[in-house]
Nucleic acid binder design. Structure first.
Lengths: 108, 108
DNA sequence: TTTAATTTCGCTTTTGTCGAAAAAATAATT
DNA sequence: AATTATTTTTTCGACAAAAGCGAAATTAAA
């Protein structure tokens, strides 16, 4: 890989951000992953992946305004870029092609 | 991950082995990946992944008889195990669920 | 100054990647 | 027939990228 590929977790995070549309930020993303993917993950891992996805150009980000709740500092909100959408579609089509080529008898 | 997860490349290799059914071995797998996934990969990479998939219990292997062509030494043939099939199905369903939850407006 | 929500930092383990060496078979040469 | 070359295939050793975590830093309200 040369920094352009989409890792297994990166793909999941990208899909979750797309699910969350306008509200995607660290902790919410973490919670959504745990809920929808039945998998535990720490917030540092999420942020690590988020940053990598942005460096790859698959996500963009902006800061929200602080909220009025206690500790409600501004959030870093993420959005899937056109390039990120393309990456998701590409890998999806590739996998669909592979699945369609599997004969009935292929498994033990 | 504790040796039970399926990496991005591992999943591709598993799908390719399923595609090849009874004939899956190193070089053929390499060629199929390059043909169907539009991606170049070395034979050492393929063998490395095959070994890890076997350690994870997602593949089993056996040796073929040598063939009569020049250099035709015995091949290590791979088959997807029941556990491997389950892993593939699980991640497939999870992604389908995520895709179905994406609103139309989700991309930039 | 305490507490809460959030992001950033430094570090380790697992995956992905490759070049080169080893092994095992047939073909060619002496 | 013995040795050497060539071909197909797998194994080995090393390094880079992705996945993962705990703890520190930041920023807001109480």
């Amino acid at each position: 890989m040369k920094g352009t590929n989409l890792g297994e977790l990166e793909e999941i995070v990208l899909l979750i951000v797309a699910n969350l549309y306008d509200h995607a930020y660290g902790i919410l993303i973490k919670n959504e992953i745990e809920a929808k993917c039945n998998r535990s993950i720490t917030i540092s891992t999420v942020h690590n992946v988020l940053q990598r996805l942005q460096e790859k150009g698959f996500l963009s980000s902006r800061y929200s305004e602080p909220t009025k709740e206690r500790g409600g500092k501004r959030k870093l909100l993420f959005t899937v870029t056109a390039s990120g959408q393309t990456a998701l579609n590409t890998i999806k089509e590739m996998r669909e092609k592979l699945w369609s080529g599997i004969p009935k008898v292929a498994f033990e």
